[in-house]
Design a binder for these strands. Structure first.
Length: 853
DNA sequence: CTCGAACGCGCG
DNA sequence: GTACGAGCGTTCGAG
């Protein structure tokens, strides 16, 4: 690799071919690196000149207390082209009115209980009744203390929730080392525009920021953790448009590639790299600590300090200043990583706003439906548990505790030691018997077919030879029943045929049935009903899942709760998706990429067959089935198509026959031999010869580069691609094939969502300016979730609006991701009153028009 | 009593 | 030995 090619035309100060200066900057190993830099870079090694950040200057920090001054400073942002900004937030009046009395009530009850306990404990002639009362008082005290602690914690976190907090301070920086702080709603000291109410003042401040900065395309809006700033802007119906940057994203993404050793965690690369840490490590500056500041002032929330004094505003001022300084420094780093400046500015940093808006809206949740189904689910779980206890007791006389999973130690003991059911899978790490769905399916199959080992499955298809009744399969030469003419397979078949059923066959099968049920019920209840409802926001009646994009492929992930793994109705007895239902007057709109990854494989591999198929609206699964069976596509049965679908799907993962076999067993309920699965894998590779070719090429590229790359330039290091450990290397080879597909899908989805955010922001701004011809306004069309190849919107229940907006979104998604993209990209839209019942968009619009007539 | 590993299951 | 990516609840043993 040529250095010039790698670093070509980037705006760094020092020529890169020479050894970097000794430095204490991230990734810099000074002397060692200087020596090594004369050798060509190894795969995955980026020769970064970590440079030297500009030194700190005398600070120009001021408080702004009039709207006129604010306007002047925002004009200065337009002049410099930079607006680094930060919100400070504090609980809203509503939130305070909600939490404070509740906490106080708990406190007075706790005091009452403590007094009662003290009195009873002081009693020398305590009766049995007294002792009972004392015990119950202590129990209640412990409960109340727990409740208070939880409520206090929740209250203390309200500043992070735009539905329970307000912006109380804004800080803005147009240039490094200068910063302006705008106190809006502090309870002490001076605030901006004292003649206005605080809500009016906040509106006035945001209005200026909106007009001069957020909607001023060329001014670069900079915020560390832009998702947070976006959320609070959305609270006031403001959108951050045009050019944006998030320095946190810049330093994390830079180090992920160029200095992974500096990160605390490779899987969660942002951990321990917040603004304060990054500023210490990059500039050697210790910023003021937020909680220490509050503690020093003896207050709980930021709006309780006087931000009009130097000591009070310096904290906010620093955030905006260092945000900008980080931007300048890390820009010199990302420019040295090929493609990263563009990818970060065009895709990744603007996407932080999408994360913010999706976290802001969350998903509507119907508590009544959820509670009703929860009762049903608990009953089903209880029934399964009782059945497990009963079956094992009747079979063995043992009393077991099935727990919530039916797989506790006592159950395993009864299962394997008393009932002697076959052990199917053994864990590599602990040597314990596994009882996952696959193992249970195999166990049941063995009991049903008298197998002693799952390897005997292959004998079941062997026809029994003539006179098998008289043949003893295990007899030696000369012994009665010996027959030297039968094959090993026939011997196996006879052995099974003559065998008795397992003594606990029926009990075992019944037990397995219940174990499969209880595990599924427990997962549904714990993770998907209780585990979601506990995140219900009392101020919105919605569930606001968190999102992040620090995954290895660049995909989004979701947490607290995970909004991307809600069970599909076809795999969920309790229909949990139907709990997600908007209020009357609203509908949910779903739009998903059709066969997205397969289309990206067609692009990446340039496979003529796939390209032709997608361009002629052909059916890829049918085509694979045809290749597999040799039959014409018109004769392919549903089952044959399903088999092929599993094969097509698996190929993207670097598919093996073993994994395919398992997929068939657990997902499709079909038993297939390894040979059959290998035939399917082989059929796919033969039908689309460029796929394996592309995967081989991807491995070669990754070996040379040390990373895999996506369509718009995200890079994923593959540290073991040239390693000696064949298992790890194999994993990285499959990743090399898969990451450009999965990661490109993520890039394209982000780009689409960015465009939707922009559109909503533009229309919402226009509406505020008095324009009436607007469609995508905040509160009428809202992007509320993303599940990898699907976006979910909440919209007004207005067919004309849904149809128009749907068409626009569809068009955005169906744009070619690159010029001359070889296959069409297709998005399919549907509408539902809730997430559990969807209808095609067209169908729904027609039905609505029917109703209207 | 807390914490983390292992396991199992939900999604694309 | 047995596929890509992700989060979370339960169980169980270590500290």
């Amino acid at each position: 690799m040529k250095l010039g090619g790698l670093f070509g035309n980037v705006g760094v100060k020092a020529p890169l071919a020479r050894a970097p200066k000794p430095t204490t900057q991230p990734g810099g190993t000074s002397h060692l690196e200087a020596v090594l830099s004369t050798a060509p870079p190894k795969p995955g090694e980026f020769r970064i000149d970590w440079g030297k950040p500009a030194p700190q200057a005398v600070k120009d920090y001021e408080v702004i207390l009039t709207l006129e001054e604010l306007e002047q400073y925002l004009k200065r942002c337009q002049e410099t082209g930079f607006a680094s900004f930060d919100w400070e937030t504090a609980p809203s009046e509503e939130a305070r009115a909600y939490y404070v009395p509740r906490i106080n009530m708990l406190t007075s009850r706790i005091e009452e209980l403590e007094a009662g306990i003290l009195q009873l404990e002081g009693k020398s002639d305590a009766t049995v009744t007294d002792k009972g009362v004392l015990k119950s008082l202590k129990a209640e005290l412990s409960v109340k203390k727990g409740e208070r602690k939880e409520l206090e914690e929740t209250f203390s976190k309200t500043p992070f929730d735009p539905h329970q907090a307000d912006i109380c301070t804004v800080s803005i920086s147009a240039k490094a080392h200068e910063s302006r702080v705008v106190p809006i709603s502090h309870k002490v000291g001076k605030n901006i525009a004292p003649e206005l109410s605080r809500d009016e003042a906040r509106e006035a401040v945001l209005d200026l920021m909106d007009r001069y900065v957020f909607t001023h395309e060329p001014t670069l809006k900079i915020a560390v953790n832009l998702a947070f700033e976006t959320k609070f802007a959305a609270r006031y119906k403001r959108y951050i448009l045009g050019r944006v940057a998030d320095p946190l994203m810049m330093w994390v993404r830079s180090m992920q590639i160029a200095a992974p050793g500096r990160l605390n965690s490779l899987s969660k690369p942002h951990t321990g790299w917040g603004l304060k840490t990054a500023t210490k490590k990059t500039f050697g500056v210790t910023m003021q600590d937020f909680s220490q500041l509050l503690q020093k002032k003896g207050v709980q929330f930021f709006d309780e300090i006087d931000a009009s004094t130097k000591e009070g505003f310096i904290y906010s001022a620093e955030d905006a200043d260092y945000g900008l300084q980080h931007y300048h420094y890390w820009k010199t780093i990302i420019e040295q990583i090929p493609g990263y400046d563009k990818w970060l500015h065009d895709i990744e940093m603007p996407f932080m706003r999408v994360i913010g808006i999706m976290e802001f809206w969350g998903m509507p949740w119907n508590t009544d439906t959820a509670n009703a189904r929860y009762e049903e689910a608990l009953q089903a779980q209880e029934n399964a548990s009782e059945e497990i206890k009963r079956i094992i007791f009747e079979a063995t006389g043992e009393e077991v505790a099935p727990g919530k999973t039916g797989k506790t130690g006592s159950v395993k003991l009864a299962l394997f030691n008393k009932m002697k059911l076959p052990i199917l899978k053994i864990s590599d790490k602990t040597g314990n018997a596994s009882l996952d769905e696959e193992a249970l399916i195999d166990m049941r199959f063995m009991l049903e077919n008298k197998l002693e080992s799952i390897d005997e499955e292959k004998y079941l298809a062997i026809p029994l030879p003539e006179g098998w009744e008289d043949i003893e399969p295990d007899a030696n030469y000369g012994e009665p029943g010996f027959n030297g003419d039968i094959t090993k397979q026939e011997r196996g078949a006879i052995r099974i045929k003559k065998r008795e059923f397992h003594p606990f066959k029926d009990a075992g099968i019944a037990l397995i049935e219940q174990m499969m049920k209880i595990q599924k019920y427990t997962t549904l209840i714990s993770s998907h009903i209780v585990g979601r409802q506990k995140y219900l926001n009392p101020f919105t009646d919605r569930i606001h899942a968190g999102y992040s994009s620090f995954t290895d492929t660049g995909r989004l992930n979701s947490f607290k709760p995970n909004g991307q793994n809600v069970p599909r109705p076809d795999n969920d007895d309790f229909k949990i998706r139907s709990f997600f239902a908007p209020k009357p007057g609203k509908i949910l709109f779903f739009i998903d990429f059709s066969g997205f990854e397969l289309r990206l494989i067609a692009w990446k591999s340039n496979d003529e067959v796939m390209i032709e198929l997608f361009n002629t609206n052909g059916d890829m699964h049918r085509r694979t089935a045809s290749a597999l069976t040799g039959k014409p596509e018109s004769d392919i049965t549903k089952i044959e198509r399903t088999n092929a679908k599993a094969g097509n799907f698996g190929i993207a993962y670097g598919g093996t026959e073993y994994a395919l076999q398992k997929t068939f067993k657990t997902d499709y309920g079909v038993r297939k031999t390894l040979d059959e699965c290998a035939a399917i894998v082989n059929a796919v590779k033969t039908a689309y010869p460029r796929i394996p070719q592309m995967q081989r090429q991807a491995i070669l590229d990754a070996r040379e580069n040390g990373y895999a790359e996506t369509i718009y330039g995200y890079k994923r290091l593959l540290r073991d691609i040239n390693g000696t450990n064949s298992k790890l290397r194999g994993s990285d080879e499959r990743r090399a094939g898969n990451t450009p597909i999965q990661g490109s899908a993520a890039d394209i989805m982000k780009d689409c969502q960015n465009k939707v955010y922009d559109r909503i922001g533009e229309d919402t701004f226009k509406q505020r300016q008095g324009e009436t011809d607007v469609l995508f306004t905040h509160g009428s069309i809202d992007m509320i979730a993303q599940i990898h190849d699907e976006m979910i919107f909440e919209m007004d229940d207005d067919p004309a609006l849904v149809e128009k907006a749907g068409a626009w979104i569809k068009a955005v998604m169906e744009r070619p991701p690159l010029p001359d993209f070889p296959v069409p990209v297709i998005a399919e839209a549907s509408v539902g009153k809730d997430w559990g019942t969807k209808m095609d968009l067209e169908e729904w619009v027609n039905a609505q028009e029917e109703v209207a007539r």
